[in-house]
Amino acid sequence: MRNIWKHAVLIFAALLVAYPFYYMVTTAFKNMMPAEATLIPNFVMMTRLFRPNDPTRIVDGYLVQILPFIATAFSIFLLRQQFLGFPKELKDAARIDGAGDVRFLWSVVLPNSVSTLVTVAIIGFLASWNAFQWPLIMTSRPDIQPVQIGLNAFRGEAGSSYHLLMAAAAFVVAPVVALYLVGQRYLVQGVARTGIRG
């Protein structure tokens, strides 16, 4: 459930930022920092700012898992690619009809970007469903830990009961497989266009 909210925010933020790029200077904002570069500093930052017993529960809670990933350079890049395809005349026509920036974004750009948005949403979902390393170092309470951590922890409990372990793995994989079979077109499209590798 939290993931869905996260993606609503993620898409909204990415949408907001990709739009002006279409009109602004064309030099792309290339954020090339890999996650490895920010892992340790983000860890230090989060554990320093918020003590473990922090009542706001930012560390070892949901927020710590959500915040660093809301704005991703990847989704901005993907949407920008899409927006570059919009003819400038469309914008001028909308302005003459009295539509401002927000109206143009909502009524013209948004309906025409559905497939890219779906791609961004699916890839974002996969990224958070499959999240492992960051929650591994930031969380310790089972009730807020994501499913991959749970599966890994279950390996210790299941021991050599491989039938149980395989059942657990199947549960973890099932939603992804379902999503993939439904949204295959969007996913493959996004990957072929940008080349992400999980």
Binding site: W129, N130, F132, L151, N152, A168, A169, V172, V173, G198
Partner: peptide
């Protein structure tokens, strides 16, 4: 698309 953790478990 399957997670590395689940796949590696198998």
């Amino acid at each position: 698309v399957t997670s590395t953790v689940a796949a590696a478990t198998v």
